[in-house]
Design a protein around this nucleic acid. Structure first.
Lengths: 162, 162
DNA sequence: GATAATAAGGATACCATATATCCTTATTAT
DNA sequence: ATAATAAGGATATATGGTATCCTTATTATC
């Protein structure tokens, strides 16, 4: 059970976009080049972010993407669900209903106890991811990445941002 | 990102095994019939449980499976990891290393901040699943399932247990 | 001792999905 | 008018989950 690599891509792209000055846009091409990713396929992930309303786009030359909301209002979970969907990791197929000892026509009331535990674990996962915003990520990155690389990267980015 | 259905199967099978009297064994055939599952494929999941040391097996007629430990010492996470593996849901491909602005030969120190957040979420998921044992599940099931069905099921099971 | 039922596991096939590429269309800055 | 962009449809490939079949070793029962 592994998340799509598009999730990783989307998170890194959003991290970059959150450092973009107001009103500027960054293209798929630049984001792909910056991360060493296939442009066409990365485009699908960015489209997912757009459809989820997390980023805003413009067309034409100098077009691209910017965050649609302040970085403090975009969580990891928002981004992950935009790309991966918001389904649960555990799907209950209600196999208890196959029990041959059940009376004919017996109908389950309530959810399966096993599924409930699994869904609580899913919710713990979500809760953690909902608690971290792009703004917080940006602070950590800025404190961890050597200033030379950090600044150099944003020079590179602004050079290409419309 | 969905867990294999074998995880669901293994959890339900372990729930049944945890209600089995000391020294009795239940076969793949009975477990498959009880849950309406393909016997041969369910067998793979049970083999995973066996390889993980969660269940003990015997061969020959009247052979089958029993828990290898008290139900209070077997957690949801034990069972899930036996079937699904213990890998993380987020794989970090270190795409930050593709940044063209990095100095030649620059080597990352420490893990990626994005990966760390994802792994903390994974750990929250694990922590929840590690906190629930088969013994606790058994108590919930016994309190929720109508006594007629609960008892009928274990009559059915004991009828087939070696 | 013969028989039958079982777990273990290898081989194979099928199918859904993730990954990846290519192409067309509409939009828009230059 | 031109060129660069996002959006998205179509298609191909790789991987992994699902499922079945078969063989082997073990062992309870007759």
């Amino acid at each position: 059970m592994i998340l799509k690599s598009q999730v990783e891509w989307a998170l890194h792209c959003c991290a970059i976009l959150s450092g973009l000055p107001e009103g500027r846009y960054l293209s798929t091409k630049a984001l792909a080049e910056l991360h060493g990713l296939p442009k066409e396929y990365l485009s699908k992930a960015l489209q997912s972010l757009s459809q989820a309303g997390l980023v805003h786009t413009t067309l034409g030359p100098s077009g691209g993407y910017r965050l649609a909301k302040p970085a403090a209002e975009v969580t990891f979970l928002d981004i992950i669900e935009a790309v991966e969907g918001n389904g649960r990791t555990f799907v209950c197929n209600n196999i208890r209903a196959n029990n041959p000892c059940r009376p004919e026509g017996y109908c389950e009331v309530g959810s399966c106890a096993i599924a409930r535990v699994m869904w609580e674990a899913d919710e713990a996962w979500r809760t953690k991811l909902r608690s971290v915003t792009l703004a917080e990520l940006g602070q950590v990155l800025e404190s961890e990445i050597p200033p030379q690389i950090w600044n150099g990267t944003f020079e590179w980015v602004l050079d290409r941002a419309g």
